[in-house]
Design a protein around this nucleic acid. Structure first.
Length: 208
DNA sequence: GCGATGATGAACT
DNA sequence: GTTCATCATCGCA
C-alpha cells in the first residue's frame, strides 16, 4: 500500500477536503500496534474569511500548526473532553486545514472497541471526538507530519463524484452558511446529526 | 425514540 | 467570565 506524499496535501483546502474521502488514515502507536480508518467525512476550515476557523484572526499559540507545511496534523482539545484532528493544507504560511469528522474502522478494531467502550462498529469513529479517541490521537501528535513514520495516509481509490455529499458544516456557530462539509453519502459511518445540535443555542447565536 | 442538558479544559475578550 | 469545530446521558413521551 502506497503512502501519500506532500503533493497530495499541497492543494487548496476545499480540494483536499474532497480528496481525503476514501483514503486510509494510519496511526502506528508501536511495534505491531497499528490502527487504520477510512476517511468518510471531512470539513474545510480556511483562515481567510471563515469566522469558524481558529486561525481566522491570525496566528495564536494554539493554532500555530495550522500555518505549518501541508500534511501537518493540527490537534485541538475541545469541550474539556475531546480531541479533534485536522490535516493542514495549502502552502506553508497560509492558514487552512481539513477537520476529520468520521471514519470507517479498518484495522485495530479491538483497540478501538476497548478505548471507545463499545462494540458497535458504526459508533467507533462516527464523529470527530470519537475517531480521535479510537485512533489514540492526542496532544503528543500536535504538529506532527503525516509524511513521518508515526502517522500517514495510504493511497485508495477516489470516491466517485456522485457519491460525495456536500452540506454546511456541523456544530459551529459562525459562518454556518458555507457548504464546506464533504462526506461519502452511502457510508453508515458518517457522524449522525445526533440529537438536534442544541437548536436553542444556535438560534441565540444567530440572533433570534 | 426524541430532544435538552451537563461535563470539563483551554483560549479568547 | 464566556465561548467552543463534542459526546453521553438523563428526562419525557
Amino acid at each position: 500500500m502506497k503512502r501519500l506524499g506532500s503533493d497530495f496535501f499541497n492543494v487548496p483546502t476545499l480540494v483536499l477536503a474532497e480528496r481525503l474521502l476514501g483514503k486510509i488514515f494510519v496511526h502506528r502507536e508501536g511495534p505491531g500496534k497499528v490502527i487504520k480508518g477510512r476517511i468518510v467525512e471531512t470539513e474545510a476550515y480556511l483562515g481567510d474569511g471563515d469566522e469558524a476557523c481558529h486561525a481566522w484572526r491570525g496566528m495564536t499559540d494554539r493554532n500555530r500548526a495550522m500555518f505549518g507545511p501541508p500534511g501537518t496534523l493540527y490537534i485541538y482539545f475541545s469541550y474539556g473532553c475531546h480531541y479533534m484532528a485536522n490535516i493542514v493544507s495549502e502552502p506553508e504560511g497560509a492558514a487552512g486545514a481539513v477537520l476529520l469528522r468520521a471514519m470507517e474502522p479498518i484495522e485495530g478494531i479491538e483497540w478501538m472497541q476497548t478505548r471507545r467502550k463499545t462494540g458497535e462498529m458504526t459508533a467507533l469513529m462516527s464523529g470527530p471526538g470519537k475517531l480521535t479517541q479510537a485512533l489514540g490521537i492526542g496532544p503528543a501528535l500536535y504538529g506532527k507530519s503525516l509524511l513521518g513514520d508515526t502517522c500517514w495516509l495510504e493511497e485508495a481509490p477516489d470516491i466517485p463524484h456522485e457519491m460525495v455529499g456536500i452540506s454546511p458544516r456541523i456544530g459551529i456557530s459562525r459562518s454556518t452558511g458555507l457548504p464546506w462539509r464533504r462526506f461519502v453519502s452511502d457510508s453508515p459511518h458518517v457522524s449522525k446529526t445526533q440529537s438536534g445540535p442544541s437548536a436553542k443555542k444556535r438560534k441565540k447565536a444567530v440572533g433570534m
